[in-house]
Measured scan of single mutants.
Amino acid sequence: RLGFCQHHDDEVLHLYCDTCSVPICRECTMGRHGGHSFIYLQE
């Protein structure tokens, strides 16, 4: 089961930031992890 983002309370962690080695949400890709390399996580 996927968890929720600690920075965006209502967002599920659907992605993994390869650059930072952390799970991220959709909102994170447009903010603090913008321009980073990421992949989609599987449930």
Rank of each mutant, 00 (worst) to 15 (best):
C25Y: 02
Y40I: 08
V22W: 00
S37T: 12
L2V: 05
G35I: 02
S37A: 13
Y16I: 07
G35Y: 03
V12H: 13
R32Y: 10
C5F: 00
Y16P: 01
R32S: 12
G3S: 10
L15T: 11
T19Y: 09
Q6H: 14
D9R: 14
G34T: 14
G3E: 15
C5V: 01
I24T: 04
S21F: 07
H36N: 01
C25T: 01
L13S: 14
C28A: 02
H7R: 07
H7G: 05
H33I: 01
C17F: 00
H8V: 04
D18E: 15
V12S: 07
V22K: 09
E43S: 05
V12P: 08
T19G: 03
C20W: 00
E27N: 10
H8R: 04
T19L: 07
T19D: 09
F4M: 09
D9H: 15
C5R: 00
C5Y: 00
L13E: 08
D10K: 14
D18W: 03
D9W: 07
G34F: 04
P23G: 10
G31Q: 15
H8W: 04
C20N: 00
G34A: 11
D18A: 09
P23D: 05
E11G: 11
C17P: 02
S21N: 06
H33D: 01
L13G: 04
V12F: 11
C17I: 00
C28S: 02
R32T: 12
V22R: 08
L13V: 06
G35W: 03
L41Y: 13
T19E: 08
I24S: 02
D9E: 11
H8I: 04
D18G: 10
E43F: 00
G35C: 06
Y16L: 10
M30F: 08
Q6F: 08
E27G: 11
I24M: 06
L15F: 12
L15E: 04
L15V: 07
H36T: 00
H8N: 04
I24Y: 02
L2T: 05
C5H: 03
F4H: 02
C5P: 01
S37H: 15
C20T: 01
H36L: 00
H33Q: 01
H14Y: 06
C25Q: 01
Y40P: 13
G3T: 03
C25L: 02
L2F: 14
H14K: 14
S21C: 10
T19K: 09
G3N: 11
H33T: 02
L2H: 05
G3D: 08
V22C: 01
E11D: 07
C17T: 01
L41M: 09
L15S: 08
D10Q: 14
Q6R: 07
G35V: 04
S37F: 05
G31C: 04
L2K: 09
S21H: 09
C17L: 00
E43G: 15
H7N: 06
Y16H: 13
E11V: 09
M30H: 14
G34M: 11
H33G: 02
D9Y: 10
G31V: 07
D18M: 05
D10T: 10
H36K: 02
I39R: 15
C20S: 01
Q42T: 14
D9I: 13
F38Y: 12
V22I: 05
H8L: 07
T29S: 11
G35L: 05
E11S: 07
H33R: 01
L41T: 10
D10C: 14
H33E: 00
D10H: 13
H7P: 03
Q42H: 10
R26Y: 05
G31Y: 10
S21T: 10
G3C: 06
C5S: 00
L15Q: 12
G3Q: 09
D18I: 04
D18V: 07
E11A: 10
L15K: 13
G3V: 08
Y16F: 13
H36F: 00
G31F: 06
M30P: 04
L15A: 09
E27L: 07
Y16K: 11
C28M: 02
C20R: 00
R26Q: 15
E11L: 03
S21R: 12
C5E: 01
P23H: 14
H33Y: 02
E43A: 11
L2R: 04
T19F: 12
Y40N: 14
C25H: 02
E11W: 09
H36M: 00
L41K: 13
T29G: 13
R1A: 06
R26S: 11
C17Y: 00
F38V: 12
C25R: 01
L41E: 09
H8C: 04
H8T: 08
